[in-house]
Design a protein around this nucleic acid. Structure first.
Length: 99
DNA sequence: CATCTGACACAGA
DNA sequence: GTCTGTGCCAGAT
């Protein structure tokens, strides 16, 4: 577990249920410009339960990828009250959580 | 709309 | 210790 990853997770768990954030915002929150590095950290995530990576979407509201499958990610989001249409979060900016 | 480039952590050689 | 390829991407072209 590296510092970097810990930060990513720490920031991520600040996102309340029913809201989402973007890889960009998350990257800024942890102090890096490499949103891809954040993605990598998430991909290596082992605590799929503790770390709600499904609350992280791309900058345009697209769902992006997910370790357990995009479909699963969408399900979880809907489950938390985040509307998803055609693989994208509807009005995602209204559900976007800024740090 | 399809690509390319940028930025960076991390695992494997 | 360095090099290379890869990754739940963004922004520009």
């Amino acid at each position: 577990m590296s510092e970097f990853r810990s930060k990513c997770y720490k920031e991520l768990i600040k996102v309340p249920k029913g809201k989402v954030t973007t890889y960009s915002e998350l990257a800024k929150a942890v102090g890096t410009k490499a949103v891809r590095a954040v993605g990598t950290a998430m991909a290596k995530n082992e605590k799929l339960i503790e770390i709600p990576c499904h609350r992280v979407v791309k900058s345009d509201g697209s769902i992006g990828q997910y370790a357990s499958g995009q479909a699963k990610k969408i399900e979880l989001l809907l489950e938390e009250g985040v509307p998803v249409e055609n693989g994208k979060v509807a009005n995602f900016k209204e559900f976007l959580h800024l740090f």
